[in-house]
Design a protein around this nucleic acid. Structure first.
Length: 129
RNA sequence: UUAGUUAGUUGGACGAUUGCUCCUUCGGGAGAGGAAAGUCCGGGCACCUCAGAUAAGGAUAGUUGCGAAAGGCAACCAGCCGAAAGGCUCGGGAAAGUGCCACAGAAACAAUACCGCUUCUUAUGAAGUAAGGGUGAAAAGAGUGAGGUAAGAGCUCACAGUACUUAUCGGCGACGAUAAGUAGAGGUAAACCCUAUCCGGUGCAAAACAGGUGGGUUGCUUUGUUUGGAAGAUAUGCUUUCUUUGAGGGUAAGCUCUCGAAAAAAGUUCCUUCAAUGUAAAUCUGGCAUGAACAAAGUAAUCCUGUUGCAUAGAUAGAUGAUCGUCCUUGACAGAACCCGGCUUACAGACUAACUAAGCAU
RNA sequence: GGCGUCGUGGCCGAGUAGCUAGGCAGCGGUCUGCAAAACCGCGUACCCGGGUGCAAAUCCCGGCGACGCCU
């Protein structure tokens, strides 16, 4: 779990990222990303009722995803708002699976936005274990 | 020991590392459930628009007690299920009225009775009959035996049974037991309905406060114009609102009521008749408020943002987690969102107690 | 979080307690050199569990699922 200021918390921020940000999709997760003008990056995690009817199941997936985000946070560049969407295929995934998936997605972002998102190659290999 | 019934407990444990929310005296402390669920009832609280009546609509339905109330709980009564322990029941009224009872059947609550039985007869039928047959979920709906008859029938009698009324006894009561009398024309009210009791609506996304705000709409205030009557002269008074504080209550709790004191702000005569407008919702009554119409200006709401609404967990994109190690029986259903009391539904496995039945041993 | 509506074949959709209409799609046949169209025929359903009642898609209770509104 990230501390409060590193989370994406406002409905207007979510709307802005969804409408203006870039979208990247993987097998378990998909992300929307947009530059903000702050000194830090902020991350929000989203899961819909379609994936699991029960609140316990949704909470569990959300917590695993957050843990993966927390492990990778130091390797992210600053100044971005990121929304992570959990897909139905992620129902039985572990924290390590989410971490691998996220690293791959951030790599995709780096190749598509070459000039601004450079630090994706800094993700060390042993963090993916 | 086996099978079962009822009530209850538990719902992986320990250690290490690393995170999150709130509080803090900065040392630290607290951090999901029995159902947090479904949103099915009831209450607090908030707003709508001052009180009452009626209608409509809705809910409930054995008795007594508990409870703030409840489609609530407990015990008991009646009926049904079970061999028993025990379990289940929207359990008032069909003698207020209306409707419905498909198909089959002669007939579905209404009689001119289909086959049958008996008598008469012009041999076609007429009268009697409700035992027997047939149809159907249900057929004048009281069974068995005897008498009786042209044939039959509660037509009569005996025994058994049902319903209602009365009396006595037992019980606070629902009701039960006994005796006497009366009666013999179905079912359905989870069909309309009747009786009794209860219910205003909307839900914290209610709502309150602060700041911002282009237009439209609505309300309020001020000014101007037109249009009832009479009297009178103003402050240690009276009315309303808000704040602080004291005393005494009510409530399960949240919360709330009454009285007093201090301080502040706003307002200010009286009357009659008629009419209008407003006073939530279908109608009505009472009370209350405003004189009315038009024009202009100002202001408020509607909109945006924030805070409060808040609690011995208290978030607001929503915390209570992740990883590793050891052990065992390998861990069910499942995640608070304004608060409280219930109901209903979901729940692997393990354990405890009481009781019932059968078998075995003493 | 709160409030409300609805579940009938593969799809759409009617249905006063008494045999679940109709259309589209599918399958078989007739027709044709082969298809299409037309005609004839066939199969497949009342979301689940309990209750009332002679009888339940319908009435009552409890679940499950889908959808809409409030922001």
């Amino acid at each position: 779990m990230l501390p409060k200021e590193k989370r994406l918390r406002d409905t207007r921020d979510f709307k802005r990222v969804y409408s203006k940000g870039s979208f990247f999709s993987g097998r378990l997760l998909s992300i929307n990303i947009l530059e903000n003008r702050l000194q830090i990056s902020r991350v929000g995690v989203v899961i819909t009722k379609k994936i699991s009817k029960k609140a316990v199941g949704r909470n569990k997936l959300k917590r695993k995803t957050r843990e993966a985000v927390h492990a990778l946070y130091d390797s992210l560049p600053t100044g971005y708002d990121i929304i992570v969407n959990i897909k139905k295929e992620a129902e039985s995934a572990s924290v390590a699976d989410f971490q691998k998936e996220l690293a791959g997605l951030f790599g995709k972002v780096g190749t598509n936005e070459k000039n601004s998102f450079k630090s994706n190659k800094d993700i060390p290999e042993n963090d993916l274990a």
